Simulated scan of single mutants.
Amino acid sequence: MIGPAGRRKGTGVRVVSLVPSLTEAVALTRPEVLVGATDWCTHPEGLDVARVGGSKYPDLDGVLALRPDLVLLNQEENRREDAEALVAAGVPVRVTFPRTVPEALTELGELVTALGATTEPDWLVAARRAWAALAEPTTSRRAVVPVWRRPWVVLGGETFAGDVLRRLGVANLYADHAERYPRPDLDELRGRGPELVVLPDEPYRFTADDGPEVFPGVPCALVSGRHLTWYGPCLAEAPAVLAAQLAHPLRAA
């Protein structure tokens, strides 16, 4: 965290979120404090707050105009220079960076406490229960997990999404890679001999056409990118949603 999550004298807490996961968390916990979010903050549906551009290139003047007491950031989604500019302008920021499901649940618990919630919201209680109830997988399918195409980018080591999949019985073939998001070419991906290819629909919107025809003979599972990568209220339903999608992969004819 850079700076405390404070409140300015004479005003209520005003929060701007530059992280879609956290926007949803705040909106479902203390909606009255949320005054701004990115253009990509799509949940909850019908969210009515000021929009301040994208996560990578937010409109900092627009953020400052909202007079926030706290801006929520993520080390991976947002740029350090934007965090530093906000701090230089006197705005406290809270930076998250979960790389495992337990880390995400811990950071979310700390966030709702910092926002003044006296008890954990129902969605966080449900998320804790859903992941605690998940049995340790007895077998794992060796998989590659592309997150972008042209060029190909895959999940590497120490990623939140990789931990989510591991808990669902999917072993990322690039989990030991030194880079968090390696860029192998297609021949290398095929050469790894995956038993499964996991294709999320965000950030790159993979479709059925990107699967079996590109990886012939390998089952390809199209999954919800939101449930794979977002750490927030959707964590409560992520195990069931992803397990169902992983259980029905596509195959080439």
Score class of each variant (00 low, 15 high):
9 K>C: 00
9 K>A: 14
10 G>F: 02
11 T>C: 02
12 G>M: 02
13 V>R: 15
19 V>R: 04
21 S>F: 10
22 L>W: 10
25 A>M: 06
26 V>T: 08
28 L>D: 03
35 V>K: 09
36 G>Y: 01
36 G>L: 04
48 D>R: 15
49 V>Q: 10
50 A>Q: 13
53 G>D: 01
56 K>D: 00
56 K>G: 04
57 Y>Q: 14
58 P>E: 12
61 D>F: 00
67 R>Q: 15
69 D>V: 01
71 V>Y: 05
73 L>F: 13
75 Q>A: 15
79 R>P: 00
81 E>F: 12
82 D>Q: 08
86 L>S: 11
90 G>H: 06
92 P>H: 09
93 V>R: 10
95 V>F: 01
96 T>V: 10
99 R>C: 03
105 L>Q: 03
105 L>R: 02
106 T>D: 15
107 E>H: 12
109 G>M: 04
109 G>T: 07
110 E>L: 12
111 L>G: 09
116 G>C: 08
116 G>N: 13
118 T>G: 02
121 P>K: 06
126 A>K: 13
126 A>I: 01
134 L>W: 05
137 P>D: 12
144 V>K: 09
150 R>T: 09
151 P>V: 07
154 V>A: 12
156 G>Q: 09
156 G>H: 05
160 F>R: 06
162 G>A: 04
163 D>G: 05
163 D>V: 02
167 R>N: 06
173 L>A: 07
177 H>A: 15
181 Y>N: 03
184 P>G: 07
185 D>Q: 06
187 D>R: 13
187 D>P: 00
190 R>D: 12
191 G>E: 08
192 R>H: 10
195 E>W: 00
198 V>P: 07
207 T>C: 05
208 A>S: 14
209 D>Q: 12
210 D>H: 14
210 D>R: 00
214 V>Q: 06
216 P>W: 05
217 G>K: 12
217 G>H: 08
218 V>N: 04
223 V>T: 09
226 R>H: 13
226 R>F: 00
227 H>E: 15
227 H>W: 08
228 L>M: 09
229 T>A: 15
232 G>Q: 04
233 P>Q: 13
233 P>S: 11
235 L>Q: 09
237 E>G: 14
241 V>I: 15
241 V>Y: 11
243 A>R: 15
245 Q>Y: 03
247 A>K: 13
249 P>S: 11
249 P>R: 07
251 R>P: 00
